[in-house]
Write a protein that binds this DNA or RNA. Structure first.
Lengths: 348, 348
DNA sequence: CTGAAAGCGCTTACAG
DNA sequence: CTGAAAGCGCTTACAG
């Protein structure tokens, strides 16, 4: 099309220069630029992105890599993606989204993403099994909620430990003592941090830590349901916990369902808190007290950091960073003072 | 890199041919291919996507265009995107997501997406004001829930009218008579179809149509809240409706909130139904009877249709199609039989 | 069966 | 101030 542009105007290179407002060693006579602009408009010229990408080595596209568990995207993903999708166009970047079945065998897929179709990669909550550089050396990348440190890649996370500690302290403030924690998947950094926060809150309040009160659930409603159900079944006739601290909101939803099935009222009999402050926390009844992570801001920040990295044009690892966003408790109706009467676990 | 591949092996063109398993006029001696493969692996060769795109005129990327209202993605978007993101890699396509502030001035943006960075476009719930070809002639495109017919572009939709009719008939089956409809935004095809379904159900049951029972809300929780709140305020002292048919689940959430504020129980006093069967329908209490549209399947189907279109390499309009997916009612706890006692609207 | 050459559409030193 | 030329990394007729 460039040569069509020329046909209409006068020159060849000229068109390129005026159409890209390149600030080169030029002054581009006004009349000429007018002519070119007109011609471009007339032929409705549209520069070819691939050709530009080829010569500029920049395609102005950011890749987002996420795992879809069971073919299902979740609210966490939606929120972060929201932040990314809104931030990217502000920097005139496109966003392409890659989905992976799992992180285990992601190394090869990741490599194929590095063929020039994107300028950089945002990895969403990656959990790599081995260490080893999974992202090719010269592909700029940042991780969000990286589970292990990816060597040399800057990671964006939130202060989950602090969030967990705060929300558990909040429960303690309402006079709850026996607080059950439905924890995230074993071994994940996020799970560990929540547990650490939970323990810190207990110890700050001089409460004993009872390991039987920490049970691994996972991050989904179904896993939350199962974990709590099993736990309650096993303890029929024993007293209910005062409160339940759930690894995330999805788990809390499962928790609320099971409690309802057992005839336990929330928050009258038991208080429940979640984590992430997703949409469901506001819509479920009772509304769920939760810990907000600024997921959208984190997504937006990932875009900016990644862009810096791309423009700096230095290999990963040059200036790895750790960015920690604050978390914040959002109090709602699912927390009340400890029930004065001790309730016993029934059977279902 | 190709010439590096050659340096290691023997030839130049050869590498390209074996690395792309092009089925040309070749037989590629086994020893040669071995050598090339080995060299490629050793240098860990990675073909440049931009260069390939430039010569093949195919970049193997599908564009998804959606509007983010108020910078906020919604569950509808998430579901459809889910379908797309899972389907695309099955066809070895990438997905890039474009977000627009609105559809009004989308024409120019759409044009810039047609610079070779994608091979085709999936438009999500576009609402164009003018008619006029908004998508350039030679850019393959499909719409999902297109609001007007985009000339020549095949549209994927669901039988919303039927869904609305079924769910309203369902309410009538529970003996509800005065059914309020919190409708979608004025003028949108989806709103109109829901209203048509609502009216059809009434007429099939020989019930009169009362225009004051159809009130425009919109598609968000907040708009649902406001619409119902205003409606109830105006009618203090008058009888409550038997049931509320909401334009979508988000509106239903707002509806449930307002009813709770007015001290109205669901479903004992009033039944409520939503539309879309999003995540919230399952998690809110009472769980929401809703109409399921197979959004993921629709997204996946869009990918396939678009790919056909791209491969057929014919201009838009050659074979426009209309694909209609069935809808399905999902009964849950928010519907019960009509309250025997007539409840009166209180003030809030 | 194999390699040299042209070309995809653009940009950018480099001579006029 | 302006244009001709080379080159980004690949593919694909086209001669050997």
């Amino acid at each position: 099309l460039l040569d069509v542009g020329r046909a209409a105007g006068v020159s060849a290179t000229a068109a390129s220069v005026v159409l890209n407002h390149t600030v080169s060693t030029w002054k581009a006579s006004t009349e000429m630029r007018e002519k070119i602009l007109a011609a471009a408009d007339r032929l409705n010229y549209c520069p070819n992105a691939a050709a530009q990408a080829l010569v500029n080595q920049r395609i102005h596209t950011l890749g987002v890599v996420a795992v879809v568990e069971g073919g299902e995207l979740n609210d966490y993903f939606l929120e972060v993606l929201n932040g990314i999708l809104v931030a990217a166009p502000r920097h005139r970047q496109n966003t392409t989204v890659f989905t992976l079945p799992n992180w285990q065998r992601s190394s090869e897929s990741l490599k194929t993403f590095c063929d020039g179709r994107v300028d950089g990669l945002i990895l969403l909550a990656p959990t790599f099994s081995g260490r080893g550089a999974v992202v090719p050396e010269h592909m700029p990348a940042v991780t969000i909620h990286g589970n292990r440190e990816v060597p040399g890649v800057t990671n964006i996370e939130s202060d989950e430990e602090c969030g967990a500690c705060t929300v558990v302290s909040h429960l303690i403030g309402w006079r709850h003592r026996r607080i059950l924690h439905l924890a995230g998947p074993d071994g994940l950094l996020g799970s560990t941090r929540r547990i650490r926060g939970y323990r810190r809150a207990l110890s700050e309040a001089d409460l004993p830590f009872d390991p039987t009160l920490v049970v691994t659930a996972g991050y989904s409603t179904e896993l939350g349901r199962r974990a709590l159900h099993a736990w309650l079944q096993q303890r029929a006739g024993q007293p209910l916990p005062d409160a339940v601290f759930c690894a995330n909101d999805a788990v809390a939803v499962g928790c609320l369902e099971v409690l309802a099935e057992f005839g336990v009222r929330v928050p009258e009999d038991v208080s429940v808190v979640g984590f992430d402050d997703t949409y469901v926390a506001r819509t479920i009844l009772p509304q769920l007290t939760s810990v907000r992570q600024p997921l959208r801001e984190m997504g937006a920040h990932a875009v900016e950091l990644l862009l810096e990295r791309i423009e700096a044009d230095e290999p990963n690892g040059a200036r790895p960073r750790q960015v920690v966003f604050p978390t914040e408790i959002v109090p709602r109706g699912s927390v009340g003072s400890r029930s004065p009467v001790k309730r016993i676990i029934g059977t279902w």
